[in-house]
Amino acid sequence: MLIIILRRLLQAVMVLLFVALISFLIFRFVGNPVESLLGQEATVAQRAALENALGLNDPIYEQYANFVWRALQFDFGNSYRGALPVAELIALRLPATLELAITSAIFAVIFGVITGIYTAINRGSMMTNFILSTSLVGVSLPTFLIGVLLIWLFSVELNWLPSFGRGEVVDLGWWTTGYLTVSGLKSLILPSITLGLYQMTLIMRLTRAEMLEVLRQDYIRLAVALGQSKRQVYFFHALPNILIPVITITGLQLGSVIAFAIITETVFQWPGVGLLFINAVYFVDIPVMSAYLLLVGFAFVVINLVVDLLYLLIDPRLRDGQLRKEV
């Protein structure tokens, strides 16, 4: 058990080092930091001095090690624009993105699992068919279009909800939150739906498929034959058995929710790291780009790790290292 966890941790570290490598290569070789910092008018001597100062003449592996070492201390260098430390820029905007991602993930999981189970239990009912066919629309429309449609309907036509920004936020010192004000909460609704709709459909379809599969199993048939109630059959027997695949997909989706927040943040002018990244791309602000990449990679790895540890919690067979359930 402990060995499994340690092995998994080691893997996570390896993956992170690899992500860091890519991020470092972008940082180092895309664009030219010296030119970006000094402009084109600088003398050769000035350039050489800066190159030395930045360690650009050191062996490449030393530069990589330095990069990783600094990243561990949240030092990603300064932004080319405005010369603020990148870490500070990101810290300023991370709460917005995380709140958006978490809200939409919660929305996606709750509605996805509920409708998934509902449509599996009530196969062929009118409601089920309605949910299934509308969900098809959910997967086939691109995110930005959904966002624009929602804005048109709820902001422009009905004027119920704001169409951009975070609304009022409360500053907790190290974190700014929109959860504590009415306008903050209202502002979260449309972007969260936009961002979470696709994941919700995915989770719903997966939950439904898994549930149908599990309900065919002999231990379910036995539980029914032994007279256990629907509630017992669905919740005591079936639900735990669909958790593993559902958690997997949810975890992976949470990663992509953070990554794809870029589009939603652009549509809703949401002041998060996604929008920061888009602006960085626009101005070829390499340190910001590479730090963002590292951040997203980190989020993916951590989420995957948590997912794997949750497996161990749920499935006793995995705890015993007996089999690795393919998902």
């Binding site: 002999d218 231990y219 036995l222 539980a223 034959a225 007279g227 005591f236 027997h237 058995n241 499935d315």
Partner: peptide
């Protein structure tokens, strides 16, 4: 009303007759 309480059942394959997670 009699399912389980008065009449119960045993299936062929014991490997899949028990819930693996309980």
């Amino acid at each position: 009303s009699i399912r389980g309480s008065k009449i119960s059942m045993i299936f062929q394959d014991p490997l899949v007759s028990l819930n693996p997670l309980r």
